[in-house]
Simulated scan of single mutants.
Amino acid sequence: MRPARFVALGDSLTEGVGDPVGGGRRGWAALLAAGLAEGPVDFRNLAVSGAQTRDVLERQLPAALALRPDLVSVVVGVNDTLRSTFDIHAVAARLDTVYGACAGRGAALLTACLPDPGAVLGLPDALARPLARRQRAVNTVVHALSDRHGALHLHACGGDWVSDRALWSADRLHPGERGHRQLAVRCHALLAEHGLATGPAPSAEPEFPAPTRAARLRLLATAGTGWVARRCTDLLPQLLVLAADELRHRARGTGARLDLRSSAAASAALAALSAGERRPAAAPAESAAVTYG
Rank of each mutant, 00 (worst) to 15 (best):
G150C: 01
P69G: 11
D96F: 11
D147G: 15
G224I: 09
V48F: 08
A189L: 09
I88M: 03
E177A: 07
R136K: 09
A92L: 02
A204L: 11
V98L: 06
G176K: 03
V72C: 10
V241W: 10
D42A: 14
S163Y: 09
A33M: 01
L82C: 06
A266P: 00
R279A: 15
S146I: 07
C187D: 09
A265Q: 14
L173P: 04
Y99L: 15
A66M: 09
P40C: 06
A33Q: 02
A265D: 07
L239V: 00
Q135Y: 05
R26M: 09
G22T: 03
V141L: 10
G224W: 08
A272P: 03
C102W: 02
G39P: 03
V91I: 08
A256E: 13
L270Q: 05
T85I: 11
A30K: 10
D164E: 10
D147Y: 02
P115F: 09
A29W: 01
S49L: 06
A66F: 05
A264H: 04
G158E: 10
R252Q: 14
L240K: 00
W168V: 09
L242Y: 14
A90D: 14
V74H: 03
G104E: 00
A47T: 00
G104L: 03
A285K: 14
V91A: 08
A64E: 12
R252W: 12
L240I: 10
Q60C: 04
D11A: 15
A166Q: 12
R248C: 11
F43Y: 13
W227D: 09
V48A: 10
T14L: 00
P280N: 09
G10H: 00
H89C: 08
G226H: 11
G22N: 08
A243I: 02
V74L: 05
L273K: 04
A156Q: 07
R252N: 10
E58Y: 12
